[in-house]
């Protein structure tokens, strides 16, 4: 496979799921994104992306953790799969690699000589 194709929102959500550890499900992901980035994402968009990531094998899920607010309904709890972990590591290193190759700004005097 030639790299991992992840959209911007997909990457964001994948990372958030990683951050949340074992408590990642639709609403918690929504809240976490809001808190960390201040960005409001629609809940249905989050569901769609979570499902898609699971289909692609980046996430695993199980049902569990019913609460009263949910009317006794279980959550679908997501967890990063090994494949997902390699994917974010890969993406990160790719980004870093690219970032490191950006030429320094002209006004950076450290390269002045």
């Amino acid at each position: 496979m030639k790299g991992y194709h992840l959209g911007e929102l997909e990457e964001l959500i994948l990372l958030t799921v990683g951050v949340l550890g074992k408590e990642a499900y639709g609403v918690s992901v929504l809240e976490e994104i809001k808190n960390q980035t201040g960005r409001k994402v629609n809940i249905s968009a989050i569901h769609t992306v979570l499902n898609r990531l699971e289909e692609k094998g980046f996430l695993e899920s199980k049902m569990g953790g019913a609460t009263e607010e949910r009317g006794g309904r279980r959550k679908r709890l997501f967890n990063i799969s090994a494949h997902g972990r390699t994917a974010i590591t890969e993406i990160r290193s790719l980004r870093n690699k690219l970032y490191d190759q950006i030429p320094p700004l002209a006004l950076d005097f450290s390269y002045g000589n």
Binding site: V27, H47, M63, E69, R70, R74, R76
Partner: peptide
């Protein structure tokens, strides 16, 4: 198959 999680999330946000 998806009703439980969706409805649960929707309820949760509703109460929030």
């Amino acid at each position: 198959k998806k009703l439980e999680q969706i409805q649960g999330d929707a309820y949760e946000i509703f109460y929030m």
